[in-house]
Design a protein around this nucleic acid. Structure first.
Lengths: 244, 244
DNA sequence: AACATATAATATGTAATACATAATACATAA
DNA sequence: TTATGTATTATGTATTACATATTATATGTT
Protein backbone atom coordinates (compact mmCIF):
# COMPACT_ATOMS: atom_id res chain seq x y z
CA UNK A 1 0.00 0.00 0.00
CA UNK A 2 1.47 3.32 -1.11
CA UNK A 3 1.77 6.28 1.18
CA UNK A 4 -0.96 8.12 -0.66
CA UNK A 5 -3.26 5.14 -0.42
CA UNK A 6 -2.54 4.88 3.26
CA UNK A 7 -3.49 8.47 3.76
CA UNK A 8 -6.67 8.01 1.82
CA UNK A 9 -7.46 5.01 3.96
CA UNK A 10 -6.89 6.95 7.14
CA UNK A 11 -9.02 9.76 5.86
CA UNK A 12 -11.96 7.47 5.33
CA UNK A 13 -11.74 6.45 8.97
CA UNK A 14 -11.06 9.81 10.52
CA UNK A 15 -12.63 12.34 8.16
CA UNK A 16 -10.82 15.62 7.86
CA UNK A 17 -11.81 18.37 10.27
CA UNK A 18 -13.62 21.22 8.61
CA UNK A 19 -12.67 24.38 10.37
CA UNK A 20 -15.49 26.85 10.57
CA UNK A 21 -14.12 30.13 11.78
CA UNK A 22 -16.09 32.09 14.34
CA UNK A 23 -17.10 34.48 11.60
CA UNK A 24 -18.44 31.62 9.52
CA UNK A 25 -20.53 30.41 12.41
CA UNK A 26 -21.87 33.84 13.21
CA UNK A 27 -22.78 34.38 9.59
CA UNK A 28 -24.86 31.22 9.38
CA UNK A 29 -26.43 31.92 12.75
CA UNK A 30 -27.50 35.32 11.50
CA UNK A 31 -28.98 33.89 8.32
CA UNK A 32 -30.80 31.30 10.39
CA UNK A 33 -32.12 34.02 12.64
CA UNK A 34 -33.46 36.03 9.72
CA UNK A 35 -35.18 32.98 8.34
CA UNK A 36 -36.55 31.84 11.67
CA UNK A 37 -37.91 35.27 12.53
CA UNK A 38 -39.25 35.50 8.99
CA UNK A 39 -37.78 38.96 8.56
CA UNK A 40 -38.56 40.95 5.45
CA UNK A 41 -36.93 43.78 3.64
CA UNK A 42 -36.98 46.84 5.87
CA UNK A 43 -37.12 45.00 9.16
CA UNK A 44 -34.51 46.01 11.74
CA UNK A 45 -32.01 43.52 13.08
CA UNK A 46 -30.39 43.48 16.54
CA UNK A 47 -27.62 45.94 17.41
CA UNK A 48 -24.04 44.85 17.15
CA UNK A 49 -23.59 44.85 20.91
CA UNK A 50 -26.69 42.79 21.43
CA UNK A 51 -25.37 40.24 18.98
CA UNK A 52 -22.01 40.19 20.77
CA UNK A 53 -23.64 39.38 24.07
CA UNK A 54 -26.08 36.89 22.63
CA UNK A 55 -23.42 34.90 20.82
CA UNK A 56 -20.56 35.48 23.20
CA UNK A 57 -18.05 36.68 20.66
CA UNK A 58 -16.22 39.93 20.12
CA UNK A 59 -17.63 42.79 18.15
CA UNK A 60 -14.82 42.24 15.66
CA UNK A 61 -16.24 38.90 14.65
CA UNK A 62 -19.81 40.16 14.59
CA UNK A 63 -18.79 43.04 12.39
CA UNK A 64 -16.91 40.81 10.01
CA UNK A 65 -19.95 38.61 9.56
CA UNK A 66 -22.12 41.68 9.12
CA UNK A 67 -19.69 43.06 6.57
CA UNK A 68 -20.16 39.94 4.53
CA UNK A 69 -23.91 40.30 4.61
CA UNK A 70 -23.62 43.95 3.68
CA UNK A 71 -21.40 42.99 0.79
CA UNK A 72 -23.98 40.70 -0.71
CA UNK A 73 -26.57 43.39 -0.14
CA UNK A 74 -28.64 41.58 2.42
CA UNK A 75 -28.40 44.26 5.09
CA UNK A 76 -27.74 47.96 5.29
CA UNK A 77 -26.42 49.96 8.18
CA UNK A 78 -26.88 53.56 9.19
CA UNK A 79 -25.20 55.33 12.01
CA UNK A 80 -27.31 55.46 15.09
CA UNK A 81 -30.25 53.90 13.26
CA UNK A 82 -28.86 50.42 13.34
CA UNK A 83 -29.18 47.89 10.59
CA UNK A 84 -32.05 46.69 8.48
CA UNK A 85 -32.65 43.87 6.09
CA UNK A 86 -32.72 45.04 2.50
CA UNK A 87 -34.04 43.77 -0.77
CA UNK A 88 -30.81 42.31 -2.02
CA UNK A 89 -29.50 43.13 -5.43
CA UNK A 90 -28.84 39.82 -7.08
CA UNK A 91 -26.23 41.28 -9.37
CA UNK A 92 -24.33 43.07 -6.66
CA UNK A 93 -20.62 42.58 -6.81
CA UNK A 94 -20.87 41.12 -10.26
CA UNK A 95 -19.52 44.23 -11.92
CA UNK A 96 -16.39 44.06 -9.83
CA UNK A 97 -15.81 40.49 -10.93
CA UNK A 98 -16.57 40.83 -14.59
CA UNK A 99 -13.13 41.94 -15.55
CA UNK A 100 -11.96 39.50 -18.17
CA UNK A 101 -8.45 39.55 -16.79
CA UNK A 102 -9.26 37.59 -13.68
CA UNK A 103 -11.84 35.25 -15.12
CA UNK A 104 -10.78 31.94 -16.58
CA UNK A 105 -11.30 31.26 -20.23
CA UNK A 106 -13.83 28.64 -19.27
CA UNK A 107 -15.97 31.03 -17.27
CA UNK A 108 -15.75 33.66 -19.97
CA UNK A 109 -16.94 31.05 -22.38
CA UNK A 110 -19.79 30.14 -20.05
CA UNK A 111 -20.95 33.71 -19.78
CA UNK A 112 -20.70 34.26 -23.48
CA UNK A 113 -22.89 31.26 -24.12
CA UNK A 114 -25.43 32.40 -21.56
CA UNK A 115 -25.71 35.63 -23.42
CA UNK A 116 -26.23 33.87 -26.69
CA UNK A 117 -28.88 31.69 -25.13
CA UNK A 118 -30.69 34.63 -23.59
CA UNK A 119 -30.67 36.55 -26.84
CA UNK A 120 -32.50 33.70 -28.48
CA UNK A 121 -34.68 32.90 -25.51
CA UNK A 122 -36.21 36.29 -24.89
CA UNK A 123 -38.18 36.14 -28.12
CA UNK A 124 -41.50 35.35 -26.45
CA UNK A 125 -41.12 38.12 -23.92
CA UNK A 126 -40.00 40.64 -26.51
CA UNK A 127 -42.96 40.10 -28.78
CA UNK A 128 -45.38 40.10 -25.89
CA UNK A 129 -44.16 43.49 -24.72
CA UNK A 130 -42.83 45.40 -27.67
CA UNK A 131 -44.23 48.87 -28.29
CA UNK A 132 -44.01 51.23 -31.26
CA UNK A 133 -41.48 53.38 -29.47
CA UNK A 134 -39.11 50.45 -29.28
CA UNK A 135 -39.05 50.15 -33.05
CA UNK A 136 -38.52 53.87 -33.43
CA UNK A 137 -35.59 53.79 -31.05
CA UNK A 138 -34.02 50.84 -32.79
CA UNK A 139 -34.34 52.52 -36.15
CA UNK A 140 -32.69 55.62 -34.76
CA UNK A 141 -29.84 53.49 -33.49
CA UNK A 142 -29.54 51.80 -36.88
CA UNK A 143 -28.93 55.15 -38.52
CA UNK A 144 -25.88 55.70 -36.40
CA UNK A 145 -24.31 52.37 -37.32
CA UNK A 146 -21.97 53.80 -39.90
CA UNK A 147 -20.62 56.31 -37.38
CA UNK A 148 -19.04 53.54 -35.34
CA UNK A 149 -15.74 52.82 -36.98
CA UNK A 150 -13.45 49.89 -36.49
CA UNK A 151 -12.68 49.59 -32.81
CA UNK A 152 -15.97 51.18 -31.83
CA UNK A 153 -17.94 48.50 -33.56
CA UNK A 154 -18.56 46.78 -30.26
CA UNK A 155 -20.12 49.90 -28.83
CA UNK A 156 -22.70 49.82 -31.54
CA UNK A 157 -23.41 46.17 -30.93
CA UNK A 158 -23.87 46.89 -27.25
CA UNK A 159 -26.27 49.72 -27.90
CA UNK A 160 -28.31 47.81 -30.41
CA UNK A 161 -28.62 44.55 -28.55
CA UNK A 162 -29.03 46.32 -25.23
CA UNK A 163 -32.01 48.11 -26.67
CA UNK A 164 -33.54 44.80 -27.68
CA UNK A 165 -33.10 43.44 -24.19
CA UNK A 166 -34.88 46.50 -22.88
CA UNK A 167 -37.98 45.52 -24.82
CA UNK A 168 -38.36 42.48 -22.59
CA UNK A 169 -39.03 44.84 -19.67
CA UNK A 170 -37.02 42.72 -17.34
CA UNK A 171 -34.76 44.91 -15.29
CA UNK A 172 -32.59 42.17 -13.84
CA UNK A 173 -32.03 40.73 -17.27
CA UNK A 174 -31.21 44.12 -18.70
CA UNK A 175 -28.61 44.87 -16.07
CA UNK A 176 -27.16 41.40 -16.37
CA UNK A 177 -26.70 41.88 -20.06
CA UNK A 178 -25.07 45.26 -19.63
CA UNK A 179 -22.64 43.86 -17.10
CA UNK A 180 -21.60 41.21 -19.55
CA UNK A 181 -20.51 43.80 -22.08
CA UNK A 182 -16.86 43.94 -20.99
CA UNK A 183 -16.67 40.22 -21.60
CA UNK A 184 -17.94 40.47 -25.14
CA UNK A 185 -15.66 43.32 -25.83
CA UNK A 186 -12.82 41.18 -24.61
CA UNK A 187 -13.82 38.19 -26.68
CA UNK A 188 -14.21 40.47 -29.62
CA UNK A 189 -10.86 42.20 -29.21
CA UNK A 190 -9.23 38.85 -28.71
CA UNK A 191 -9.73 37.99 -32.31
CA UNK A 192 -13.34 37.21 -32.68
CA UNK A 193 -13.69 40.14 -34.96
CA UNK A 194 -14.99 38.76 -38.16
CA UNK A 195 -14.09 40.15 -41.48
CA UNK A 196 -16.92 40.90 -43.81
CA UNK A 197 -15.86 38.13 -46.13
CA UNK A 198 -16.19 35.54 -43.45
CA UNK A 199 -19.83 36.29 -42.88
CA UNK A 200 -22.12 33.50 -44.03
CA UNK A 201 -24.16 34.12 -47.16
CA UNK A 202 -27.48 34.28 -45.40
CA UNK A 203 -26.16 36.63 -42.74
CA UNK A 204 -28.83 38.62 -41.01
CA UNK A 205 -28.04 42.29 -40.50
CA UNK A 206 -29.19 44.49 -37.68
CA UNK A 207 -31.57 46.16 -40.01
CA UNK A 208 -33.23 42.88 -40.85
CA UNK A 209 -33.66 42.12 -37.17
CA UNK A 210 -35.51 45.37 -36.67
CA UNK A 211 -37.75 44.51 -39.56
CA UNK A 212 -38.52 41.14 -38.04
CA UNK A 213 -39.29 42.80 -34.75
CA UNK A 214 -41.65 45.12 -36.53
CA UNK A 215 -43.53 42.65 -38.65
CA UNK A 216 -42.56 39.16 -37.56
CA UNK A 217 -43.18 36.80 -34.68
CA UNK A 218 -41.09 34.95 -32.09
CA UNK A 219 -40.25 32.12 -34.44
CA UNK A 220 -39.01 34.45 -37.15
CA UNK A 221 -37.10 36.47 -34.61
CA UNK A 222 -35.33 33.40 -33.29
CA UNK A 223 -34.48 32.32 -36.77
CA UNK A 224 -33.12 35.73 -37.65
CA UNK A 225 -31.15 36.02 -34.44
CA UNK A 226 -29.78 32.55 -34.91
CA UNK A 227 -28.36 33.53 -38.27
CA UNK A 228 -27.16 36.83 -36.93
CA UNK A 229 -25.27 35.10 -34.13
CA UNK A 230 -24.29 32.06 -36.15
CA UNK A 231 -20.61 32.81 -36.25
CA UNK A 232 -20.56 33.15 -32.49
CA UNK A 233 -22.43 29.92 -31.96
CA UNK A 234 -20.12 28.10 -34.33
CA UNK A 235 -17.08 29.46 -32.64
CA UNK A 236 -18.06 28.68 -29.09
CA UNK A 237 -19.12 25.19 -30.03
CA UNK A 238 -15.83 24.59 -31.79
CA UNK A 239 -13.83 25.93 -28.88
CA UNK A 240 -15.63 23.87 -26.31
CA UNK A 241 -15.05 20.76 -28.38
CA UNK A 242 -11.34 21.42 -28.39
CA UNK A 243 -11.30 21.65 -24.61
CA UNK A 244 -12.82 18.23 -24.08
CA UNK B 1 -40.99 79.35 -2.88
CA UNK B 2 -41.81 76.46 -0.57
CA UNK B 3 -39.34 75.13 1.90
CA UNK B 4 -38.89 71.94 -0.11
CA UNK B 5 -38.25 73.88 -3.28
CA UNK B 6 -35.75 76.02 -1.46
CA UNK B 7 -33.90 72.95 -0.33
CA UNK B 8 -33.85 71.56 -3.83
CA UNK B 9 -32.55 74.84 -5.07
CA UNK B 10 -29.81 74.87 -2.50
CA UNK B 11 -28.91 71.29 -3.37
CA UNK B 12 -28.38 72.19 -6.98
CA UNK B 13 -25.87 74.81 -5.93
CA UNK B 14 -24.05 72.91 -3.25
CA UNK B 15 -24.37 69.25 -4.32
CA UNK B 16 -24.78 66.84 -1.46
CA UNK B 17 -21.63 65.39 -0.02
CA UNK B 18 -21.19 61.76 -0.86
CA UNK B 19 -19.58 60.17 2.09
CA UNK B 20 -17.16 57.51 1.05
CA UNK B 21 -16.11 55.71 4.15
CA UNK B 22 -12.48 54.81 4.58
CA UNK B 23 -13.38 51.24 3.83
CA UNK B 24 -15.00 52.27 0.57
CA UNK B 25 -11.90 54.14 -0.46
CA UNK B 26 -9.59 51.31 0.47
CA UNK B 27 -11.72 48.88 -1.47
CA UNK B 28 -11.55 50.89 -4.67
CA UNK B 29 -7.86 51.50 -4.19
CA UNK B 30 -7.29 47.78 -3.89
CA UNK B 31 -9.30 47.04 -7.02
CA UNK B 32 -7.36 49.73 -8.85
CA UNK B 33 -4.13 48.21 -7.66
CA UNK B 34 -5.07 44.76 -8.91
CA UNK B 35 -5.99 46.18 -12.28
CA UNK B 36 -2.94 48.38 -12.55
CA UNK B 37 -0.57 45.59 -11.60
CA UNK B 38 -2.47 43.32 -13.96
CA UNK B 39 -2.70 40.62 -11.33
CA UNK B 40 -4.10 37.23 -12.24
CA UNK B 41 -5.68 34.42 -10.35
CA UNK B 42 -3.11 32.95 -8.02
CA UNK B 43 -0.98 36.06 -7.68
CA UNK B 44 -0.22 37.14 -4.12
CA UNK B 45 -1.27 40.54 -2.83
CA UNK B 46 0.46 42.65 -0.17
CA UNK B 47 0.22 41.74 3.50
CA UNK B 48 -2.32 43.46 5.68
CA UNK B 49 0.34 45.39 7.55
CA UNK B 50 1.95 46.56 4.36
CA UNK B 51 -1.38 47.84 3.17
CA UNK B 52 -1.94 49.62 6.50
CA UNK B 53 1.32 51.47 6.19
CA UNK B 54 0.94 52.22 2.51
CA UNK B 55 -2.51 53.71 2.88
CA UNK B 56 -2.16 55.11 6.35
CA UNK B 57 -5.25 53.55 7.84
CA UNK B 58 -5.81 51.06 10.60
CA UNK B 59 -5.77 47.36 10.08
CA UNK B 60 -9.44 47.36 10.99
CA UNK B 61 -10.32 49.27 7.86
CA UNK B 62 -8.00 47.26 5.68
CA UNK B 63 -9.49 44.06 6.94
CA UNK B 64 -13.02 45.25 6.38
CA UNK B 65 -12.23 46.08 2.77
CA UNK B 66 -10.50 42.74 2.37
CA UNK B 67 -13.50 40.97 3.88
CA UNK B 68 -15.64 42.47 1.18
CA UNK B 69 -13.33 41.22 -1.53
CA UNK B 70 -13.24 37.81 0.09
CA UNK B 71 -17.01 37.80 0.17
CA UNK B 72 -17.31 38.29 -3.56
CA UNK B 73 -14.67 35.65 -4.02
CA UNK B 74 -11.99 37.86 -5.46
CA UNK B 75 -9.33 36.99 -2.90
CA UNK B 76 -8.56 34.17 -0.55
CA UNK B 77 -6.56 34.25 2.63
CA UNK B 78 -4.54 31.60 4.39
CA UNK B 79 -2.82 31.89 7.69
CA UNK B 80 0.82 32.69 7.34
CA UNK B 81 0.63 32.40 3.56
CA UNK B 82 -1.06 35.71 3.06
CA UNK B 83 -3.67 36.43 0.45
CA UNK B 84 -3.96 35.64 -3.20
CA UNK B 85 -6.23 36.67 -5.98
CA UNK B 86 -8.63 33.91 -6.92
CA UNK B 87 -10.72 33.02 -9.88
CA UNK B 88 -13.95 34.48 -8.59
CA UNK B 89 -17.10 32.47 -8.52
CA UNK B 90 -19.65 34.60 -10.31
CA UNK B 91 -22.52 32.94 -8.52
CA UNK B 92 -21.04 33.31 -5.09
CA UNK B 93 -23.43 34.65 -2.52
CA UNK B 94 -26.33 34.10 -4.83
CA UNK B 95 -27.55 31.06 -2.94
CA UNK B 96 -27.80 33.07 0.25
CA UNK B 97 -29.94 35.63 -1.49
CA UNK B 98 -32.22 33.35 -3.39
CA UNK B 99 -34.64 32.90 -0.58
CA UNK B 100 -38.00 33.97 -1.93
CA UNK B 101 -38.94 35.55 1.36
CA UNK B 102 -36.60 38.48 1.02
CA UNK B 103 -36.83 39.01 -2.71
CA UNK B 104 -39.45 41.32 -4.12
CA UNK B 105 -42.16 39.92 -6.34
CA UNK B 106 -40.66 41.87 -9.19
CA UNK B 107 -37.24 40.32 -8.85
CA UNK B 108 -38.73 36.86 -8.47
CA UNK B 109 -40.61 37.51 -11.67
CA UNK B 110 -37.42 38.65 -13.36
CA UNK B 111 -35.58 35.51 -12.38
CA UNK B 112 -38.42 33.31 -13.43
CA UNK B 113 -38.43 34.88 -16.85
CA UNK B 114 -34.70 34.52 -17.22
CA UNK B 115 -35.09 30.84 -16.59
CA UNK B 116 -37.80 30.56 -19.20
CA UNK B 117 -35.63 32.43 -21.67
CA UNK B 118 -32.63 30.25 -20.99
CA UNK B 119 -34.61 27.07 -21.36
CA UNK B 120 -35.58 28.14 -24.85
CA UNK B 121 -32.25 29.66 -25.70
CA UNK B 122 -29.99 26.74 -24.97
CA UNK B 123 -31.36 24.74 -27.88
CA UNK B 124 -28.37 25.32 -30.12
CA UNK B 125 -25.90 24.38 -27.45
CA UNK B 126 -27.87 21.34 -26.42
CA UNK B 127 -28.02 19.87 -29.88
CA UNK B 128 -24.41 20.64 -30.56
CA UNK B 129 -23.32 18.73 -27.49
CA UNK B 130 -25.83 16.06 -26.72
CA UNK B 131 -24.55 12.50 -26.36
CA UNK B 132 -26.32 9.12 -26.23
CA UNK B 133 -25.83 8.92 -22.49
CA UNK B 134 -27.87 12.08 -22.04
CA UNK B 135 -30.86 10.48 -23.67
CA UNK B 136 -30.46 7.36 -21.59
CA UNK B 137 -30.35 9.38 -18.39
CA UNK B 138 -33.39 11.39 -19.35
CA UNK B 139 -35.34 8.25 -20.14
CA UNK B 140 -34.40 6.83 -16.77
CA UNK B 141 -35.64 9.99 -15.10
CA UNK B 142 -38.86 9.79 -17.08
CA UNK B 143 -39.58 6.38 -15.65
CA UNK B 144 -39.56 7.79 -12.14
CA UNK B 145 -42.07 10.51 -12.95
CA UNK B 146 -45.04 8.66 -11.49
CA UNK B 147 -43.19 8.22 -8.18
CA UNK B 148 -43.29 11.94 -7.50
CA UNK B 149 -46.65 12.60 -5.95
CA UNK B 150 -48.39 15.91 -5.45
CA UNK B 151 -46.07 18.15 -3.51
CA UNK B 152 -43.00 16.43 -4.87
CA UNK B 153 -43.92 17.27 -8.42
CA UNK B 154 -41.47 20.16 -8.39
CA UNK B 155 -38.64 17.85 -7.48
CA UNK B 156 -39.24 15.88 -10.61
CA UNK B 157 -39.36 19.04 -12.70
CA UNK B 158 -36.06 20.11 -11.20
CA UNK B 159 -34.42 16.80 -11.93
CA UNK B 160 -35.68 16.61 -15.45
CA UNK B 161 -34.95 20.14 -16.54
CA UNK B 162 -31.71 20.19 -14.64
CA UNK B 163 -30.59 17.20 -16.66
CA UNK B 164 -31.37 19.04 -19.87
CA UNK B 165 -29.31 22.01 -18.79
CA UNK B 166 -26.46 19.62 -18.12
CA UNK B 167 -26.41 18.68 -21.78
CA UNK B 168 -25.30 22.18 -22.64
CA UNK B 169 -22.03 21.46 -20.83
CA UNK B 170 -21.97 24.92 -19.35
CA UNK B 171 -21.12 24.72 -15.70
CA UNK B 172 -22.00 28.28 -14.79
CA UNK B 173 -25.35 27.94 -16.46
CA UNK B 174 -26.02 24.66 -14.75
CA UNK B 175 -25.29 26.01 -11.31
CA UNK B 176 -27.28 29.12 -12.03
CA UNK B 177 -30.28 27.04 -12.92
CA UNK B 178 -29.98 24.88 -9.84
CA UNK B 179 -29.81 27.96 -7.62
CA UNK B 180 -33.01 29.22 -9.10
CA UNK B 181 -34.88 26.13 -8.01
CA UNK B 182 -36.12 27.56 -4.69
CA UNK B 183 -37.71 30.38 -6.62
CA UNK B 184 -39.61 28.08 -8.90
CA UNK B 185 -40.70 26.00 -6.02
CA UNK B 186 -41.99 29.13 -4.39
CA UNK B 187 -43.82 30.31 -7.47
CA UNK B 188 -45.22 26.86 -7.84
CA UNK B 189 -46.40 26.55 -4.25
CA UNK B 190 -47.86 30.01 -4.44
CA UNK B 191 -50.57 28.83 -6.72
CA UNK B 192 -48.97 28.32 -10.05
CA UNK B 193 -49.72 24.67 -9.80
CA UNK B 194 -51.77 23.89 -12.81
CA UNK B 195 -54.51 21.33 -12.78
CA UNK B 196 -54.40 18.79 -15.53
CA UNK B 197 -57.59 20.19 -17.03
CA UNK B 198 -56.02 23.60 -17.47
CA UNK B 199 -53.28 22.27 -19.68
CA UNK B 200 -53.59 23.43 -23.26
CA UNK B 201 -54.66 20.83 -25.80
CA UNK B 202 -51.33 20.65 -27.57
CA UNK B 203 -49.41 20.37 -24.32
CA UNK B 204 -46.01 18.86 -24.70
CA UNK B 205 -45.10 16.28 -22.08
CA UNK B 206 -41.66 15.55 -20.74
CA UNK B 207 -41.63 12.38 -22.69
CA UNK B 208 -42.20 14.23 -25.93
CA UNK B 209 -39.33 16.56 -25.14
CA UNK B 210 -37.01 13.63 -24.77
CA UNK B 211 -38.17 12.30 -28.11
CA UNK B 212 -37.44 15.63 -29.72
CA UNK B 213 -34.01 15.67 -28.16
CA UNK B 214 -33.40 12.23 -29.59
CA UNK B 215 -34.60 12.73 -33.10
CA UNK B 216 -35.27 16.41 -33.63
CA UNK B 217 -33.34 19.63 -34.06
CA UNK B 218 -33.03 22.98 -32.32
CA UNK B 219 -36.12 24.41 -34.00
CA UNK B 220 -38.29 21.48 -33.03
CA UNK B 221 -36.91 21.57 -29.53
CA UNK B 222 -37.72 25.24 -29.13
CA UNK B 223 -41.19 24.64 -30.43
CA UNK B 224 -41.73 21.76 -28.04
CA UNK B 225 -40.33 23.61 -25.10
CA UNK B 226 -42.40 26.64 -25.94
CA UNK B 227 -45.55 24.56 -25.72
CA UNK B 228 -44.34 22.81 -22.63
CA UNK B 229 -43.76 26.12 -20.88
CA UNK B 230 -46.68 27.90 -22.46
CA UNK B 231 -48.70 28.24 -19.28
CA UNK B 232 -45.74 29.82 -17.54
CA UNK B 233 -45.10 32.24 -20.36
CA UNK B 234 -48.75 33.21 -20.45
CA UNK B 235 -48.86 33.74 -16.74
CA UNK B 236 -45.75 35.86 -16.43
CA UNK B 237 -46.81 38.00 -19.35
CA UNK B 238 -50.23 38.52 -17.84
CA UNK B 239 -48.82 39.39 -14.45
CA UNK B 240 -46.36 41.89 -15.81
CA UNK B 241 -49.10 43.59 -17.74
CA UNK B 242 -51.10 44.04 -14.57
CA UNK B 243 -48.15 45.71 -12.89
CA UNK B 244 -47.77 48.39 -15.54
C1' DA C 1 -46.59 79.05 22.23
C1' DA C 2 -43.42 78.59 18.59
C1' DC C 3 -39.16 78.35 16.92
C1' DA C 4 -34.27 77.77 16.52
C1' DT C 5 -30.36 76.19 18.91
C1' DA C 6 -27.76 73.53 22.17
C1' DT C 7 -27.20 69.10 24.51
C1' DA C 8 -27.33 64.27 25.36
C1' DA C 9 -27.86 59.65 24.01
C1' DT C 10 -27.17 56.00 20.75
C1' DA C 11 -25.21 52.83 17.29
C1' DT C 12 -22.06 52.41 13.79
C1' DG C 13 -17.21 53.62 12.07
C1' DT C 14 -12.20 53.80 13.04
C1' DA C 15 -7.98 53.12 15.71
C1' DA C 16 -4.63 50.79 18.44
C1' DT C 17 -2.86 47.00 20.86
C1' DA C 18 -2.37 42.43 22.33
C1' DC C 19 -2.66 37.73 21.87
C1' DA C 20 -4.29 33.15 19.52
C1' DT C 21 -3.72 30.12 15.83
C1' DA C 22 -2.31 27.77 11.63
C1' DA C 23 1.20 27.10 8.14
C1' DT C 24 5.76 27.09 6.81
C1' DA C 25 10.67 26.75 7.24
C1' DC C 26 14.32 25.43 9.89
C1' DA C 27 16.74 22.92 13.48
C1' DT C 28 17.50 18.80 16.06
C1' DA C 29 17.94 14.16 17.56
C1' DA C 30 17.32 9.21 16.92
C1' DT D 1 17.32 10.11 6.54
C1' DT D 2 13.28 10.76 8.81
C1' DA D 3 10.23 12.09 12.17
C1' DT D 4 9.65 15.40 15.70
C1' DG D 5 10.29 19.77 18.00
C1' DT D 6 10.84 24.92 17.53
C1' DA D 7 10.67 29.57 15.63
C1' DT D 8 8.65 32.59 12.61
C1' DT D 9 5.12 34.76 10.15
C1' DA D 10 0.56 36.45 8.64
C1' DT D 11 -4.06 36.02 9.45
C1' DG D 12 -7.87 35.46 13.07
C1' DT D 13 -9.94 37.10 17.43
C1' DA D 14 -10.45 40.00 21.53
C1' DT D 15 -10.49 44.27 24.01
C1' DT D 16 -10.73 49.00 24.73
C1' DA D 17 -11.21 53.59 23.44
C1' DC D 18 -12.74 57.20 20.78
C1' DA D 19 -14.91 59.51 16.43
C1' DT D 20 -18.95 60.55 14.03
C1' DA D 21 -23.63 60.87 12.39
C1' DT D 22 -28.41 60.73 13.65
C1' DT D 23 -32.22 61.10 16.61
C1' DA D 24 -34.51 62.69 20.55
C1' DT D 25 -34.74 65.81 24.27
C1' DA D 26 -33.97 69.96 26.60
C1' DT D 27 -33.13 74.76 26.74
C1' DG D 28 -33.75 79.38 25.86
C1' DT D 29 -35.35 83.35 23.20
C1' DT D 30 -38.90 85.98 21.02
Amino acid sequence: MSKAEGTRNLQSKLRPIVNYSLTDQVETKLLDLFKKEDLRSGDPIPKENELCEAMGVSRTVIREALTRLKTIGLIESKKNKGMILTEPDLLIGLDKLLQPKILSEETLQDMFEMRLALEMGIAELVFARIKPQDILDLKAILKTEKDYKEDLEMDFEARFHGRIYAIARNNTLLRFQSMLLPIFKYVHDKGLKLKEEELPKNYVTHSIIVKVLETGNPEKYRDAMKRHLKVHFDRTIKIRKLLE
